[in-house]
Design a protein around this nucleic acid. Structure first.
Length: 283
DNA sequence: AAGCGAGTCAACCGCCCGCTC
DNA sequence: TGAGCGGGCGGTTGACTCGCT
């Protein structure tokens, strides 16, 4: 059918972003919110491709980003999630507030891969290297969700855990949507930390257990305004679990800090709200 | 001080999917 | 029903930094 290019490449800048471009993008999104990325560059006076603007915003300028080194806890979480999800960086990022898929992907490729290899673990299969050729290894990995229930058109380029191509089944999505509707933060209405602590209390020997109740969007952040339950996102997840909790500010909607919305803040003053770029936080 | 290789990460590319008309 | 569009994702690239020789 042929597609028009996402932008007029002849008149767009490439490469590193300048401070002026950053500021223009920030100013525009601050005023208008995220929206039509294709038209954004022109409206914001940027000679950039819409996709490039989106990437720059998501990966670098977003105010809720957590900069700095990954903690050991984050390391472990990434490893666990990767063992279950494979190279689904966006899904993994959805469980690490303030981290982007790109950041996690880079971190995986530069740090964790080597770390696992040095421990004699195959980073793709998460099995000892001498067993890494066992193709059944991954499909036997424990999961809380039965990803195999509903087949999904797999991304053929995704090589990590092909057997883990997955999709949430309807009941899982509905359950998540309902929980979001009730608590609108975490499934139980308490913070994730509290949930994890409670889980630890209940299952003290359950350190390996991973709560894979992946966040399926945030109701007030979702693309579809006519839902307050997150079902809009979940409904799209009926075919693919796009966990788009990165959308956090839309015109005409209440602006809410993502981490606070998720209950990830650890104190009264949310650390994510302490911006380093002078950007106005949402809570 | 200079050269070189390895490591890091921002940015780009191409493909895919959902939605709309 | 299917073409087209917009947005998102994973893989890859290349510029930059750092440490070693």
């Amino acid at each position: 059918m042929g597609r028009s290019p996402c932008c007029e490449k002849a008149h767009t800048n490439k490469g590193a972003w300048t401070r002026d471009e950053d500021q223009r993008l920030i100013d525009y999104i601050r005023t208008h919110g995220e929206g039509c990325w294709r038209s954004l560059p022109k409206a914001a006076g940027l000679l950039r491709c819409g996709k490039s603007c989106r990437l720059r915003w998501i990966n670098y300028l977003r105010p809720d980003l957590k900069r700095g080194n990954f903690t050991e806890e984050e390391d472990q979480l990434i490893i666990k999630l990767h063992s279950l999800l494979g190279n689904k960086w966006s899904l993994i990022a959805a469980r690490l507030p303030g981290r982007t898929d790109n950041e996690i992907k880079n971190y995986w490729n530069t740090h964790i891969k080597r770390k696992l290899l040095s421990r004699g673990i195959d980073p793709q299969t998460h099995r000892p290297l001498n067993q890494a050729t066992d193709t059944d290894a991954v499909s036997n990995a424990p999961t809380e969700l039965d990803f195999r229930n509903v087949p999904r058109v797999s991304n053929t380029k995704s090589t990590a855990n092909p057997s883990l191509d997955f999709k949430f089944n309807d009941s899982q999505i509905k359950a998540k949507a309902e929980s979001l509707e009730e608590g609108n933060s975490s499934s139980s209405g308490m913070t994730t930390d509290e949930e994890q602590q409670q889980h630890k209390d209940k299952h003290p020997s359950d350190g390996q257990e991973l709560n894979l109740e992946l966040s399926i969007g945030i109701s007030s952040f979702g693309r579809n305004n006519n839902s307050t339950t997150g079902v809009s996102t979940a409904s799209s997840a009926e075919s693919k679990p796009r966990l788009d909790n990165r959308k956090f500010h839309f015109p005409g909607q209440a602006s809410i800090c993502l981490c606070c919305q998720l209950g990830f803040q650890t104190s009264e003053i949310c650390s994510n709200c302490q911006t380093t770029n002078g950007f106005n936080r949402y809570c």
